[in-house]
Design a protein around this nucleic acid. Structure first.
Length: 605
RNA sequence: GGAGCCGUAGUUCAGUUGGUUAGAACGCCAGCCUGUCACGUUGGAGGUCGCGGGUUCAAGUCCCGUCGGCUCCGCCA
């Protein structure tokens, strides 16, 4: 028989009682985390989101409560009324904050029972946690785990801190619509059919980009929003189809002013985990990041930078007969990383690393073991002296191994950049308690797409070119000298922390003429530009102020705050990597009548 | 679109060269137990080896296909 809650009120959480409460009569409510039954008395570990308190129920002291306690099973929901008593010194539990006290039950109500759970919430001994598939199906149970409860509470704290900080700077929170209009640039849109305008569709926002710029034109000056965004692209460990951004826009600002807001908001949020980020973040240009780390989001918690061996190899005597000859002839490069003290890597380990870089399109990986004598597959082509010279050029010392990739720049840099991270993980080179922010600046305005042979926007099409490169930009578009597009840098920047792109933004174009040039540069005809963005081009003609801003990924920030590498650990209801919700079983079918109303017919393949 | 890893009691895993009745721990159920906190202890129940097909005297084990989960490449202005 279940008991009714009636008027009974909780007086404390299960994490709040301490020695100072001894003697008080309290009411706790929560879930039975564990029960230890000794016949004439029973211990219950009672859990709520704040913690665990031990309940003692004695047959002598409270026979009715004891009967209830005997009935209780794991995850039953119970209410306990009783007295806080101090534990004797030898029975204190050091492992939990409430361990110096326990609650001697006078009355117990069983508010609800529970079937045995499909998996255990706490892993025991060497047991692993249940598979993520099962936990996602029973997300409401998985979310009872203290770890996930802590993560979601941290997320709530982070968002609260952000709002406080933005408010303190005079930013105004403005909500923008979820039902927008599709603009085929960028990511794939999620679209929503219109019932009233049959055959027409809304699109969910990939970000509120245009709307926040419109807010600037509307004179709001400093806008922010905790905005939900949607992108219908394949998932990754740090990517979900819907996610949350801190979206910010400011008028009358240059990059420096935006940087200081980014720095301030991150500093404020990281104080939640007692981390004091520097007042000014280090800066690095995009080109420098790519050359030194092989990525535009470098993890600066460890060094192991990429070293350029291109010139050394070019001037080597037997280069023509070496495997690098063709790579170098085609304007390629040779780069290396040096792994400290790992000249003892085995054949098997090197084969694995070889396979690893091949995933990034590298033709292979070669190496020099820098010992008393150098060892290398390259010894067939180069003298020991030359190999030593290469190794020293890669800043290797005796006992190190130099890992070398050669080929096209667009392959070598990402492959070695990824290898750098992989080795750092394998060799435990990353101190989990350090936090290294960096601002990446001077992104290219356009990227050359090798497949299409076209220049494509690297950021979004509202990004302003750098003042220094404006003439290049004009010439490139107006005189159709398209190769000049590759030289145009944008007023675009990213904030990177520990290798995660946590925020990105730009100074926007606020003049119609430049905006039209940019649409032309990315291949939008004036007609198409007008159809898609006509309202925006028009808005630029009514006194648009200079403006810029950024967007910061809430989940990625929370991942770092919570020390997890998985975005699902900081979202309440995430989807699987194939975009399903295993709990609700979404996406799901809809009734034929719903489709009829929308004028939609399903074509099966 | 492509690649890798994984799928065996409720859960986490083991399962040898293809071989006879598929095991362990935890959980669950029943009993005992006055200080546990991963309680202890005695006993018990519990299996579509993801699914489909094939090879074989014989398949959890080998082969093909398929579904699902995770990770990565492409993709993510």
């Amino acid at each position: 028989m279940l008991d009714l809650l009636g008027n009974l009120q909780r007086t404390h959480s299960c994490g709040s009682l301490r020695e100072e409460h001894v003697g008080q009569t309290v009411v706790l409510m929560g879930w039975v985390a564990r029960k230890r039954d000794f016949g004439v008395f029973t211990f219950i570990d009672l859990r709520d989101r704040e913690g665990i308190t031990q309940i003692v129920v004695s047959e002598d002291f409270a026979p009715e409560a004891h009967t209830k306690a005997k009935q209780a099973r794991s995850e039953y929901v119970i209410a306990v009324k009783g007295e806080v008593v101090a534990r004797s010194p030898e029975t204190v539990n050091q492992k939990i904050p409430t361990g110096k006290i326990e609650v001697l039950a006078k009355e117990i109500l069983i508010l609800n029972d529970s079937k045995p759970l499909p998996f255990e919430l706490e892993k025991v001994g060497s047991q692993n946690l249940a598979s993520e598939e099962l936990r996602l199906k029973y997300r409401y149970l998985d979310l009872r785990r203290p770890q996930l409860q802590r993560n979601l509470m941290m997320r709530a704290q982070a968002i609260k801190k952000i709002r406080e900080y933005m408010d303190s700077l005079g930013f105004i929170e403005i909500e923008t619509p979820i039902l927008l209009k599709s603009t085929p640039e960028g990511a794939r849109d999620f679209i929503v059919p219109s019932r009233i305008y049959r055959g027409k569709f809304f699109a969910l926002p990939q970000s509120p980009q245009i709307l926040k710029q419109i807010c600037m034109i509307a004179g709001f000056d400093k806008y922010y929003q905790i905005a939900r965004c949607f992108r219908d692209e394949d998932l990754r460990a740090d990517r979900q189809p819907e996610f949350t951004q801190l979206d910010v826009e400011m008028s009358f600002v240059n990059q420096e002013m935006v940087y200081s807001v980014i720095e301030g908001v991150f500093r404020s949020v990281f104080r939640l985990i007692d981390v004091e980020l520097p007042e000014k973040f280090p800066r690095m240009t995009y080109n420098e990041a790519i050359e030194r780390f092989g990525t535009d989001k470098p993890d600066l918690r460890f060094s192991m930078e990429l070293k350029d061996l291109t010139e050394s190899f070019k001037t080597a005597e037997n280069i023509a007969s070496s495997p690098f000859a063709s790579a170098l002839q085609n304007g390629g490069m040779v780069k290396a990383i040096t792994v400290k003290g790992k000249a003892d890597y085995s054949r098997k380990q090197l084969d694995e690393l070889q396979e690893f870089v091949k995933r990034y399109g590298a033709s292979g990986l070669t190496w020099i073991k820098f010992l008393e004598e150098t060892q290398s597959p390259l010894a067939k082509f180069f003298s020991p002296e030359k190999l030593t010279e290469f190794a020293e050029k890669a800043e290797a010392e005796k006992g190190d191994i130099v890992l070398i990739v050669a080929g096209k720049k667009s392959v070598v840099l990402p492959a070695l950049g990824a290898l750098r991270i992989e080795i750092a993980k394998r060799e435990n080179l990353i101190d989990k308690n350090t936090y290294k922010p960096v601002l990446i600046t001077e992104f290219p305005m356009f990227e050359y797409n090798e497949e299409s042979g076209q220049y494509e926007p690297a950021h979004h099409p509202f990004t302003s070119p750098m003042d220094e490169d404006l003439e290049f930009f004009r010439r490139a578009v107006e005189k159709d000298e398209r190769e000049l597009l590759g030289k145009v840098r944008a007023k675009a920047y990213d904030a990177v922390i520990n290798g995660y792109e946590c925020a990105g933004g730009s100074i926007r174009i606020h003049q119609r003429e430049i905006q039209e040039l940019n649409f032309k540069a990315i291949g939008l005809s004036p007609e198409v530009a007008k159809e898609r963005f006509g309202f925006f081009l028009e808005a630029l003609e009514y006194g648009a102020p200079p403006h810029g801003g950024f967007a910061a990924g809430i989940e990625r920030i929370c991942m770092i705050l919570c020390g997890t590498e998985n975005i699902r650990d900081v979202m309440a209801f995430p989807k699987t990597s194939s975009t399903q919700d295993l709990m609700m079983d979404s996406p799901g079918k809809v009734d034929e009548s719903q489709l009829d109303e929308l004028g939609i017919r399903i074509i099966s393949d």
